[in-house]
Amino acid sequence: MADLKPKTEISFAGTFASSAFAACFAELCTIPLDTAKVRLQLQKKAAAGEAVGVPKYRGMLGTVATIAREEGLLALWKGIIPGLHRQCLYGGLRIGLYEPVKAFFVGSGYIADVSLFSMILAALITGALAIAVANPTDLVKVRLQAEGKLPAGVPRRYSGALNAYYTIVRQEGFGALWTGLWPNVARNAIINAAELASYDKVKQTILNIPGFTDNILTHLLAGLGAGFFAVCIGSPVDVVKSRMMGDSSIYKNTFDCFVKTLKNDGPFAFYKGFLPNFGRLGSWNAIMFLTLEQAKKFFTWEP
């Protein structure tokens, strides 16, 4: 991923396969934190009918514990099937396309360090393209994760991932699978730029420090840095995306969701679930990039 190019090459198919595998593995390890993040972002709706108005979920670990206690441990992995669907498509495409798009901007024969601007622009484009394809999987994942907030005795809308795809198309139309597309495009383009560009840049910077080499420690530090930048930059659009996908009926459009969230909950609402979001994205990026760097070795060859 870094611009200090090794003397090996990898095909797009190899990059896609290794990226999809790494993203799926990271998803499997960290989805309980993502479930906690979504519940915290949807907190206002869960507490709306309570007379006392005491928040049901408090903090990352508290939310994880509450979900496990009230709904069972497996509830923390709700949405894992569409989550894996998403990572196969989105994870494979956004990373698989990143190097070719970056090379398009600077030229395939470019050997110097690529500018941060080119990194960001390439990642913005690949993130937007990838999520435009994978939006239905993201929608179903959020819907399934939000199921647990329904009151006891209320029948669940979906029995599983495939049933959710079918039910949404039958009840809301095929286009409903792309509900929340624009905030999702904004969120994933921004987060992809923050993740890939910052990983590239942080790794490049670390490798310029005497004593550091292209090893697991470097990948771990660069992955954590990528996760931190991604959360700081992408949290507001992530909150809007979760609220639009969780229940789009109360919002006219993305801008309306943004305005209502700001008006009703204040500016700090856009950073609801910040710690679980960082816990999720920080650990997700560390696991994903560590796995990706190792997986890519199986697909590289000497030119």
Results as ranks from 00 to 15, higher is better:
2 A>W: 11
10 I>S: 13
20 A>T: 07
23 A>W: 01
27 E>W: 01
28 L>D: 01
32 P>E: 00
37 K>M: 00
42 L>I: 02
60 M>G: 09
67 I>D: 11
68 A>K: 06
68 A>E: 09
69 R>Y: 02
71 E>I: 05
81 I>G: 08
83 G>T: 07
84 L>T: 08
90 Y>H: 06
91 G>S: 06
94 R>Q: 11
95 I>C: 04
98 Y>L: 09
101 V>G: 02
106 V>F: 13
111 I>L: 11
117 F>D: 10
121 L>R: 03
132 A>M: 15
133 V>M: 13
138 D>I: 15
141 K>L: 15
142 V>F: 09
145 Q>N: 13
146 A>N: 12
146 A>D: 15
151 P>L: 15
155 P>I: 09
155 P>R: 07
157 R>C: 04
163 N>G: 04
164 A>K: 01
168 I>A: 04
168 I>T: 08
173 G>S: 06
182 W>N: 00
184 N>I: 01
184 N>F: 03
187 R>P: 00
190 I>A: 03
199 Y>T: 12
208 N>Y: 04
209 I>D: 08
212 F>G: 04
216 I>N: 14
218 T>L: 14
221 L>Y: 01
223 G>H: 10
226 A>S: 13
227 G>S: 14
230 A>H: 01
232 C>A: 15
232 C>G: 13
241 K>H: 01
242 S>W: 11
245 M>D: 09
250 I>E: 14
253 N>Q: 12
264 N>F: 08
265 D>M: 07
269 A>D: 07
270 F>A: 06
273 G>L: 08
274 F>L: 11
276 P>T: 11
278 F>S: 05
279 G>F: 09
289 F>D: 14
291 T>R: 03
293 E>S: 14
295 A>C: 14
295 A>W: 03
296 K>Y: 05
301 W>K: 15
301 W>G: 15
